[in-house]
C-alpha cells in the first residue's frame, strides 16, 4: 500500500492539472496546469523505475546489486529538459500575447475563430 503512494500522487496531480487547464481563464494558470501534468508524468516514470531498497545504478563500488532502473531516470531527465524548453517557449508567447492584446485571458484571445 505504502509503495503505491507515488501512483496515487500521479492520479491526484493529473486531475488537478486537467481541472486547472480546463477551468482557469488566465493563460499563465493554464500553462501552470500543463507543467503540473508534465510533473505527473515524470513522477509516474520515475516511480515505475524504483525498486524497494534499491541503490543508484552505478556499478563501481556498489554496495549491492539491487538497483533502481537507470532507463526511467534517463527518460525523465530528457523529458524535464523538453518540459523546460516547452515552458520557456509558451511563456514567451504569452508575453507577446500580453503585449499585443493587453490581456492574458483565454477568452479574449480569440481573434482566430470559425
Amino acid at each position: 500500500m505504502f509503495w503505491n503512494l507515488p501512483y496515487f500522487t500521479v492520479v491526484i496531480l493529473t486531475f488537478i492539472a486537467i481541472l486547472t487547464i480546463l477551468t482557469k481563464k488566465n493563460l499563465v494558470k493554464v500553462l501552470l496546469g500543463i507543467n503540473i501534468l508534465e510533473s505527473a508524468v515524470n513522477l509516474l516514470i520515475i516511480s515505475i523505475g524504483y525498486r524497494e531498497g534499491g541503490v543508484a545504478p552505478i556499478f563501481t563500488l556498489a554496495p549491492s546489486t539491487n538497483m533502481v532502473l537507470p532507463t526511467p531516470q534517463a527518460l525523465v531527465l530528457t523529458s524535464i529538459v523538453i518540459g523546460v524548453a516547452t515552458s520557456a517557449l509558451l511563456l514567451s508567447f504569452t508575453m507577446v500575447i500580453y503585449r499585443k492584446y493587453g490581456s492574458v485571458d483565454v477568452e479574449k484571445m480569440r481573434e482566430l475563430r470559425e
Partner: peptide
Amino acid sequence: EKGRAIEAAIKYFIVSTIAAIFFLFAIA
C-alpha cells in the same frame, strides 16, 4: 501580425504539448 500569429502558435503549441504529454503517459 499584430499578435494573431502568436495566438495561432500558442494554440497549436498548447494542444500539441498536451498531446505529447498523453503520449509520454502511454510510454510510461
